[in-house]
Computed example of a mutant assay.
Amino acid sequence: MPAKKQITKEMILDAALKLLKEHGYDAVNIKQLAGALGCSTQPVYLSFSGMDELRDELIPLAVKEFKDYMRSNSGDKEINLYDINYINFAMDEPQLFCFLFMRENAFAEIRQALIPVIEQSVRGLMETYNISYEDADILHDQLWMHAHGIAAMTATGFCDWDMEKVSMMLTDCKKAFTEKFEA
Results as ranks from 00 to 15, higher is better:
104 E>S: 14
65 E>V: 01
167 S>E: 15
89 F>W: 01
26 D>V: 12
20 L>A: 04
133 Y>I: 12
29 N>A: 09
161 W>I: 08
176 A>L: 14
109 E>F: 07
11 M>K: 06
39 C>A: 02
172 D>A: 14
39 C>G: 00
49 S>G: 10
21 K>S: 10
107 F>I: 09
48 F>T: 07
149 G>Q: 09
162 D>T: 10
70 M>A: 09
177 F>Q: 00
131 I>P: 00
60 P>C: 05
83 D>P: 05
151 A>G: 13
6 Q>V: 14
116 P>S: 04
117 V>T: 12
177 F>A: 01
6 Q>I: 14
169 M>Q: 04
163 M>V: 07
128 T>R: 10
169 M>D: 09
91 M>W: 04
23 H>R: 15
62 A>L: 01
17 L>K: 01
70 M>Q: 05
45 Y>K: 09
114 L>R: 04
123 R>C: 06
98 C>F: 14
54 L>Y: 03
52 D>A: 13
128 T>D: 01
63 V>E: 05
176 A>I: 13
30 I>E: 07
132 S>T: 15
160 D>H: 00
44 V>T: 03
152 A>H: 02
39 C>I: 05
149 G>K: 03
22 E>F: 09
36 A>C: 10
101 F>E: 03
57 E>Y: 07
151 A>Q: 10
8 T>R: 04
171 T>Y: 14
121 S>Q: 00
75 G>L: 03
107 F>H: 07
36 A>R: 09
30 I>P: 05
8 T>A: 04
25 Y>P: 04
31 K>N: 12
25 Y>C: 07
5 K>G: 01
165 K>D: 06
50 G>T: 04
54 L>T: 04
43 P>L: 08
52 D>S: 13
145 M>Y: 13
132 S>C: 14
78 E>L: 15
140 H>S: 06
22 E>V: 10
134 E>M: 13
41 T>W: 06
180 K>V: 11
78 E>T: 15
110 I>V: 14
119 E>L: 04
39 C>P: 02
55 R>L: 09
152 A>M: 11
68 D>T: 14
119 E>V: 00
24 G>C: 02
88 N>T: 00
163 M>C: 08
93 E>P: 08
174 K>N: 11
167 S>K: 13
120 Q>F: 11
66 F>T: 02
98 C>E: 14
30 I>H: 01
146 H>I: 03
150 I>M: 03
41 T>H: 11
123 R>S: 00
124 G>A: 04
70 M>R: 05
155 A>G: 01
182 E>I: 10
19 L>E: 09
57 E>K: 05
92 D>T: 12
136 A>G: 12
164 E>W: 11
54 L>G: 06
130 N>W: 10
21 K>D: 11
8 T>D: 03
96 L>H: 08
23 H>E: 15
7 I>E: 08
90 A>F: 02
36 A>Y: 07
116 P>F: 02
159 C>M: 14
110 I>T: 09
171 T>W: 11
116 P>E: 02
165 K>S: 01
138 I>A: 12
154 T>C: 07
100 L>Q: 00
164 E>Y: 12
44 V>M: 01
163 M>Q: 01
12 I>Q: 07
60 P>T: 08
97 F>L: 11
64 K>N: 09
7 I>V: 13
136 A>S: 14
74 S>Q: 14
80 N>D: 04
55 R>C: 00
166 V>E: 06
155 A>Y: 08
